[in-house]
Design a protein around this nucleic acid. Structure first.
Length: 513
RNA sequence: GGUGACGUGACCGAGUGGCUAGGUAGAGGUCUGCAAAACCUCCUACAGCGGUUCGAAUCCGCUCGUCACCUCCA
């Protein structure tokens, strides 16, 4: 049983094998930090969080790189290209890096809330200008890029003449692309071909974010950073490179061209993995369409199409309930259903403690409750154990099948039903061995908590519970039931709370001990 | 125009050439002081029309409908 992943490059599910086991290098194209993250921005990180968690579960040593794009995304490829970071900065009248830092902080906060473990390396594009310049120089040396007026462009037609195939990832031919080229691209006169893309852009006088380079002051093209940073931290060829489906072209296509055109001479990654989009009423969520749901707003609610707020864990569960390559549509109905399902799964987690607790040690129970067996003879749990192990195996079948979390979750619910049945009666409990039960309980816990990364979100209000407890305390005191009084006082003390009987009534304070 | 997806029961959403996905909602039941939870049962679908096949929702073709990428986008 091994993990297979759908590779966009080959358009097939392939068995995953690391290039250099046990190490696995994973790169996810991170956010451009010039505005608040929306739900769509969360899907990739959640999917790749589960992927890296699962790879680690399988025993691999994962190096997970998720970059921060804090420079270089042009508004357009035209000569008047404007940096998004600067645009946002100008609007807010602050330093561009301040904008980047602000949204980087927000982004990290949201990702942590969604249960995404911090990446092992989170490189910033602005911190890797030297590496990017080096890649450009390599491409120029290989004759695949040219300089015009302080800007450098990648020569796509030449690249293809050399037997490479720009378009191999997104399955396009350059003929088709040329045919589809629109008329309004006159501003690109610097480029030899409309297909060429910028590796380095000359900074106009008003451009703030600029760096010196062999071609004058400027800034890197927006596809370049990922190639440069992926190579720096994961080598010429990494195991997995991913992002949203909308990055497949042109971003990832350009990355491959850059890596092939540089000294790496590789496709940059063995597996190219793309998550599908999140839609609202069937239409892709995007900034340009204005139908996006900001994460911060969604957690609080209401916002946009949603009448209620949904906690980060509910959102995570909601996303994982669909396969990552399917589009997923957001709605109150869907999220509310997801919330109930999520809570059911969490209540299952709580049940596990009971299942494995002393009272339900099945071998003991069996001795007492099942028809007496001959001395030294064990009851037959073969069928029960087999069923239980099958339920557990199904969960992993789902995960292994292209990280199909939807199937894995469905299987978890089946396993949970079994747990509930077992917990209901001792007779049921006697149908399985404690070894098989422990295995299943451990598997459930591992998949829910460690692999899917779903944590329980406490919803009870501690102050309210304390208030209730104090009412019972007062009653017991009035009844002079001092044994109860002592129990309550001791229980609260163990929580660091002391009860103070005053003339005005019962009060409490945190213990000063 | 080019490229690529998709259309599953009330809703969300897996999967698949013959075998119950799962969650939510709804109905009935067991349990229960009431309730909840849990468990059991039921409602049981694959856009339409053809074709291939012993058998298709699953493969092929056509039709209708929806979406994405080709421009910044997760």
């Amino acid at each position: 049983m091994s993990l297979s992943l759908y590779n966009t490059l080959t358009r097939k599910k392939e068995e995953f094998q690391p290039l250099h086991p046990p190490q696995v290098g994973v790169y996810l194209c991170g956010p451009t930090v010039y505005s608040e993250a929306h739900l769509g921005n969360a899907r990739g990180p959640v999917v790749f969080d589960v992927l890296t968690r699962y790879l680690r579960h399988l025993g691999y040593q994962v190096r997970y790189v998720r970059n921060i794009t804090d420079v270089g995304h042009l508004e357009s490829d035209a000569d008047t290209g404007e940096d998004k970071m600067e645009k946002a900065a100008r609007a807010a009248r602050i330093e561009p890096m301040q904008v980047a830092q602000h949204f980087t902080n927000r982004y990290r906060q949201h990702m942590l809330g969604l249960g995404c473990l911090p990446p092992d390396i989170e490189p910033q594009a602005s911190g890797h200008i030297i590496e990017q310049i080096q890649v450009i120089e390599e491409i120029i040396n290989n004759g695949l890029a040219y300089e015009v007026n302080g800007s450098v462009y990648f020569d796509v037609p030449k690249y293809n003449e050399e037997g490479k195939r720009y378009g191999k990832l997104s399955n396009r031919s350059i003929e088709d692309q040329l045919a589809g080229t629109r008329a309004g691209l006159e501003g690109q006169s610097e480029k030899r071909s409309p297909l060429d893309f910028a590796l380095w852009k000359k900074a106009s006088p008003e451009h703030i974010m600029r760096w010196p380079s062999p071609w004058g002051e400027g800034f890197p093209g927006w596809h370049l950073e990922c190639s440069a940073m992926s190579r720096k931290y994961l080598g010429d060829l990494s195991d997995i490179h991913g992002g949203g489906l909308d990055l497949m072209f042109p971003h990832h296509e350009c990355e491959i061209a850059q890596s092939q055109g540089s000294h790496s001479h590789t496709d940059e990654a063995r597996f190219w993995v793309h998550n599908n989009m999140i839609t609202v009423n069937g239409t892709k969520m995007s900034k340009s369409l204005g139908n996006f749901v900001l994460l911060g707003d969604m957690f609080k609610g209401p916002t946009g199409p949603l009448a209620f707020g949904y906690s980060p864990m509910v959102v995570r569960f909601f996303l994982l309930q669909a396969h990552y390559r399917s589009p997923v549509d957001v709605s109150d109905d869907a999220l509310q259903a997801a919330r109930k399902g999520y809570r059911k799964l969490m209540n299952g987690l709580r049940l596990l403690d009971r299942l494995t607790a002393d009272s339900l040690s099945s071998d003991v129970i069996r001795d007492r409750t099942v028809a007496p067996l001959a001395e030294g003879k064990q009851p037959d749990t073969t069928a029960g154990d087999t069923e239980l192990r099958k339920l557990v195996a199904d969960v992993f079948v789902g995960l292994n099948d292209d990280l199909n979390t939807a199937r894995a979750i469905a299987s978890l619910f089946n396993l949970l039903r079994k747990f509930n049945t077992l917990a209901a009666t001792t007779a049921a409990m006697a149908t399985v061995s404690s070894a098989a039960l422990t295995e299943a309980v451990d598997a459930y816990r591992a998949v829910v908590s460690d692999i899917l990364g779903l944590q329980d979100e406490p919803r009870a209000n501690a102050e309210e519970l304390l208030k209730l407890t104090l009412e019972f305390y007062t009653e017991a005191k009035a009844e002079k039931a001092y044994d109860k009084v002592d129990v309550i006082r001791a229980a609260l003390k163990s929580q660091g709370i002391v009860i103070k009987d005053t003339k005005a009534g019962v009060e409490w304070a945190y213990s000063e001990e």
